[in-house]
């Protein structure tokens, strides 16, 4: 979360998002392990699918932004008008 707030490089923001999603998955697996249920790992698999879809679209957007602005600074992309 700190990385998401502090860094202005879009690639680092995506990496921080991965860390946060991973933390959510870790919490699910730990909860499932402490209760002895398999549901935690099932939710981890779903989180994995969400992270894969998110990173595919996010990295395509990173490439688009870089080709347009020649930078990865997200402050440059503050004007979204089509």
């Amino acid at each position: 979360m700190i990385g998401l707030l502090v860094r202005r490089n879009l690639l680092f923001i995506l990496m921080s998002l991965e860390v946060m999603v991973n933390a959510a998955g870790l919490a699910f697996v730990v909860a499932g392990a402490s209760h002895g249920q398999a549901d935690g790992q099932v939710m981890f698999i779903f989180i994995l699918a969400v992270a894969a879809a998110e990173v595919a679209v996010g990295l395509a957007l990173v490439l688009l932004l870089y080709h347009r602005y020649r930078t990865l600074d997200v402050d440059m992309a503050s004007q979204l008008r089509g």
């Binding site: 995506l14 697996v29 992270a51």
Partner: peptide, 25 residues
């Protein structure tokens, strides 16, 4: 923690596939 399937998925998909996407970009 006793979740070997989640561990394998973490290595294969996260550290394998998603990180390779990042390196490609």
């Amino acid at each position: 923690l006793g979740a070997p399937f989640a561990a394998a998925l973490e290595v294969i998909i996260y550290a394998g596939a998603i990180m390779v996407l990042f390196i490609f970009v």
